[in-house]
Each structure stands twice: as C-alpha cells, then as structure tokens.
Amino acid sequence: MSAIITTDLTKKYGVRTVVDRLSMTIEQGELFSLLGVNGAGKTTTIKMLCGLSKPTSGDAQLLGDSIVSDPYAVKSKINISPQETAVAPNLIVAENLETIARLYGRSKKEAAEKADEMIRRFGMSDIARDRAKTLSGGWQRRLSIAMALISDPQILFLDEPTLGLDVLARRELWGVIRSLKGKVTIILTTHYLEEAEALSDRIAIMAKGRLKAVGTAQELMAGTHTQKFEDAFVALAAESGVEL
C-alpha cells in the first residue's frame, strides 16, 4: 500500500486556486520533498494532508484512509513538525514530549518511557529538565521534531525543519532526518535546494499550485538538461511563468 495517494487535490480561496488538481503517489518509507517558490502551494498541501484544511475538491488517501471522509483516522497515523517552532514554552523538554505522547493515547507510564527514549535518541539528556523557552533555536527545532516522532507516526510532515538555523545546527538536523529514512514516510518542505537534494529519495516541484515535476534529483536534472539541481529547479519553476 502506498503511504499517500492524492487525487485531483484542490484548494481554492474564493476565486484564487492555491493547489490545483494535485495528483501524486508517495511510497512508504520514502523521504519525499515538496519544493516551490513562495506561494507555490506547499504548505497548503501539507495542511490538507494533515487535516488542518479541507480540500475544495479532490481527495487524498493516507495509508488507505481518506482525509475527507475519515480525517480522525488519518490524524492518528501522522504527526507534524510545523514551520515555526511549536513547543510549550513553560514546560520542560521531558514534559513537552510526554504531553504529545499522551495526546496520542499513551498512558502516563508509557509516555514517560517514550519521552526517555526520545531524549536519548535525540541527545537531549543534558537539557531534559530545561524549560523549552530557554533552549536555543536549534534545540527547540530538535525538540519539535522529537515531539512529532514520539507518537510513532507512520507518516511524518516536516515543514521547513531547518529554517533559520545556522549551518552546524542544520547539518545536525540533517543527521537526525537521515536516521529516520526508511523507517518513517517523511514529507519535507524546504526552501533550501541543497537540503532537498541531500536528503530526498524523490522531489516534487510545485509552481502556482500545480505539480510541475516529480523524480529524483538526477532525474529532474536529466529532464531539464541541467548540471546543477538549482538550475533544474529554476527551469521547472520558470516554465510556469513564476518570476525568479
């Protein structure tokens, strides 16, 4: 079974079409990146797939469940690390993790055990008792991803996970994301082309709400007769008349 199948997924705000008949398939265990310039429809697509925004038309099946007819079933299988850091500021790291585990149905004991596991896995032992608001941007982002993983999601959405981080923090997070490859289906949105190229199994390029191309970085470069991924991206995004 595929992880995600979208069929003519469309979102309109009034007369403005933000996502236009998006049809694509993402396989289980894949790290799939959604790229596009601002306003391409990436975040709206993620919001629809997470049940945060209702499609105007079309549908998506996530591991067999429809986002239109059974969003509750979808929500129990997924988790998201939003674009902005989304942590509870006055809670310590361990409490942030335990809270999310419990919201996904874990008992208090199970939640504590899972939190310990995530703290070890993400190298957060030294900051486990610190309040989230006192952490650096990099640690907050790391915590945010750990919170998204503590529910053992089958599909994980990472919306701009390294936005605003310095090079070292970004590379550290890349390591974390790489360690998840093959275990969880990951949908990544990013503005950093080198990030998508380095991490992704496949990349989709969106422009003006439409899917322009899908493939590996090499396939996209071959298809556009370019040597660099950035050039391939520019060629595909420019095809739709997007100003770059």
Binding site: G51, L52, Y72, K75, E84, T85, V87, L103, A148, S151
Partner: peptide, 14 residues
C-alpha cells in the same frame, strides 16, 4: 500564534 495549536489540531484531539 506560535503554531503549537497547529501541532495540536493535527493530533487526534476532538
């Protein structure tokens, strides 16, 4: 305002 509610709204909370 901080996207925390986005995380919560994506969870199976009614």
């Amino acid at each position: 305002g901080t996207s925390f509610l986005m995380r919560l709204f994506a969870s199976p909370l009614s």
